[in-house]
Write a protein that binds this DNA or RNA. Structure first.
Lengths: 202, 202
DNA sequence: ACCTCAATGTAGGCAACGCCAACAATGATG
DNA sequence: CATCATTGTTGGCGTTGCCTACATTGAGGT
């Protein structure tokens, strides 16, 4: 059937980006469960099969969304690290923690997506790289601190993991509504302090 | 239309339990995405609308699944606490950590479900109670340690949170395939030690 | 013993979804 | 200017969650 002419041109221009943007909006406002390719297509003003040209799967779109999330998170962490160049280690770590938790508070649904265990084999490689890159800020901070003797010696990966797990745990609890966001942010300084100085009395 | 007689009785007996059991099996074997009420009904040998009599929603079934998960986790934690009655604090905490991480390794999909942010308002109360109960083992351990002076003073909730977040972070990373399970379990002792003694050199 | 009725299971239908195949419009490349 | 890969459209298929109407059952009151 020949097409009835409309105001919109046949080709969208940058449908992929538009879909991702719209998807992130729905994700933020209505949650991941409300994400449907068809609804997304309607919201973007294209036919229900158009998204299939840019994402082979629904999961492929979710993966792309997660990847974009990692990139934003990575930017936030890098900025936080750059903003406290010569501060002492505890302040530096606190800044990183604040950046990470801030991201978790602002994008809880996205965070859930980013750490979900179901990814296309295609995307998993790029996603793993993105995770490493995000962890990079933390790793570098710890490596430098270890060189300066501000941190216990030992396998740097393990030391970093202790901090990373603690922060990620907070973020996950916030994203899962098991922990009040403001309360967690307010107690962050104490949290990092306890992490660095230990739970045992000195 | 009158019913053609079959070997199976009209009433199942305990359909609700059978559905939950079947659901948990599918969850473990094929993931949460593969859970469908209709498929579940087929597997249990009832009609596609029968589950609706016991779970008003698909989400209601997921919530029931999560609740059962919390009960199992709680048992594991309680048992771990009971198994190390007079051990010193670090050993006690390590035992709790091992129990929690063990659960995460064995039931990653279930853990994801338990900490998902979408729950029916009906279930959320019971779920919150279950979370508190699971946290109870940790809280009690810390409270006792604080009384004995084995732990820094200060808001006990905050001190507990540092440990809880750290463990939950590890569990979440394992469940999300961002961390190798065996590696994490192997390094658990060191992890707990660092948590207690801090990352700064003494 | 019978009747009633709430609980539980069944049958069918509806709208929405993801995915697929066939076709149409477009713009870049020769 | 013809060709053709890219990108969008239409229509269809099978599945799903949920709803309504109906059937079967067992328990409790008379």
């Amino acid at each position: 059937m020949p097409r009835i002419p409309t105001s919109r041109p046949y080709h969208h221009g940058d449908l992929r980006a538009a879909l991702l943007q719209s998807a992130e909006r729905t994700l933020r406002e209505k949650g991941a469960a409300a994400l449907s390719l068809r609804e997304l297509a309607r919201a973007t003003g294209v036919s229900h099969a158009a998204p299939g040209r840019h994402f082979k799967d629904k999961q492929a779109l979710l993966d792309a969304l997660a990847l974009a999330g990692y990139e934003r998170l990575n930017q936030a962490l890098t900025a936080a690290a750059a903003d406290t160049p010569e501060a002492d280690f505890e302040q530096r770590l606190t800044a990183l923690a604040r950046a990470y938790l801030g991201f978790a508070v602002e994008n809880p649904e996205l965070l859930e997506l980013m750490f979900a265990r179901k990814h296309e084999p295609d995307s998993s490689g790029r996603l793993a790289a993105a995770v490493d890159q995000s962890l990079g800020s933390l790793t570098r901070t710890f490596a430098r601190a270890q060189e300066r003797g501000e941190i216990v010696q030992g396998d740097p990966e393990r030391v970093t993991l202790v901090a990373a797990a603690s922060l990620h745990g907070l973020a996950a609890l916030i994203a899962g509504c098991a922990l009040d966001a403001e309360e967690a942010m307010a107690g962050l300084d104490t949290h990092v302090h306890l992490l660095l100085h230990g739970l045992k009395p000195r």
